[in-house]
């Protein structure tokens, strides 16, 4: 399978990249390329120009700073997977990074690309919704911060205009009592989720959940933020009864469709099952 013809340019600086994008409305951004290049090979995308941001310096990092975990957009998934900081303090992200695509793809695929593609089947969107993350988007006017809840405008449509680039992801920094978990039911390694759920919660010293984020992967046209379930669980001790009530709310907002991964009924039931399991796993971690 062979990509169509296109021009290619590899800017050395961010302003240069932004100018190129501004001047070429038909251009596509190439980062890790592991979503874009297969699309090119199937000729599902036929851009005239690829702007390769892969050589931009200073966009690959993982650090805690100013109350945030900051991740540079060009950070590859395997760097997340292998980061001891993330492994020890951000188990939700760590779980997800291990389930994205396969280990070799993760060496090229970037966190920024995964989010900017805004594919509801991708894993990071739900993870970032659960975290209550912020996305830094940079245009010629400089960077701006977008709450993750406003980032997924529609299917494959992020809140990034053509002449902007996603440059950083910010996750609220870990504090004691935080716990998270990502459960993805997939048919095999490398598959998109049949259903996925991301949970991030905080429990107080007396075991009350005072904050929880809950979101679903590949169960709708955009990642699903389970707001009602989150509200129902906030302030509870996450007992079985609390969970039973809340996961039903989560299953209600899911918009699964019958497909080759399973029926609508099966997927809705999976939401209940894996949400329960993910919350329990997150709770164990929060109390650890």
């Amino acid at each position: 399978m062979i990509p169509p013809q296109f021009d290619y340019i590899s800017p050395q600086t961010l302003p240069e990249a932004l100018t190129l994008l501004g001047n070429n409305p038909d251009a596509k951004v190439l980062a890790g390329g592991h979503s874009l290049i297969p699309m090119l090979k199937f000729r599902l995308a036929t851009p005239t120009l690829l702007v390769d941001i892969g050589r931009l310096a200073g966009l690959s990092y993982i650090r805690e700073e100013d109350g945030w975990l900051k991740i540079g957009a060009l950070t590859v998934e395997s760097a997340i997977d292998k980061s001891s900081l993330i492994h020890s303090k951000y188990p939700l992200l760590s779980d997800a990074a291990r389930m994205i695509a396969d280990p070799i793809v993760r060496n090229k695929a970037t966190v920024g690309g995964n989010l900017a593609h805004a594919d509801p089947a991708n894993d990071h969107p739900a993870v970032m919704l659960a975290y209550g993350a912020e996305i830094v988007v940079t245009g010629v006017a400089g960077p701006k911060t977008i709450p993750i809840t406003e980032f997924f405008v529609g299917p494959f449509t992020p809140a990034i205009s053509h002449a902007e680039l996603l440059t950083e992801i910010r996750i609220p920094a870990h504090k004691p009592g935080d716990g998270g978990s990502y459960i993805k039911i997939e048919r095999k390694v490398g598959d998109y989720a049949t259903a996925g759920v991301a949970v991030q919660l905080h429990v107080t010293a007396d075991g009350t959940c005072d904050k929880i984020g809950l979101a679903l992967t590949n169960l709708g046209l955009t990642p699903i933020h389970c707001v009602a379930a989150m509200a129902a669980l906030t302030g509870t001790k996450l007992t079985d009864a609390d969970l039973k009530h809340a996961v039903a709310l989560a299953a209600e907002v899911a918009e699964p469709q019958d497909d080759y991964r399973g029926t609508e009924e099966y997927k809705r039931s999976l939401v209940r099952t894996i949400t329960t399991r993910a919350i329990k796993a997150a709770l164990v971690r929060a109390k650890a």
């Binding site: 290619y8 190439l30 690829l50 390769d52 070799i104 793809v105 060496n107």
Partner: peptide, 20 residues
């Protein structure tokens, strides 16, 4: 799969120019 600067990568999904 080949190694680019020591990291295994699937070379069917990398443009040659990316590996310059």
């Amino acid at each position: 799969t080949v190694q680019i600067n020591g990291t295994p990568v699937k070379s069917c999904t990398v443009l040659t120019v990316q590996a310059d």
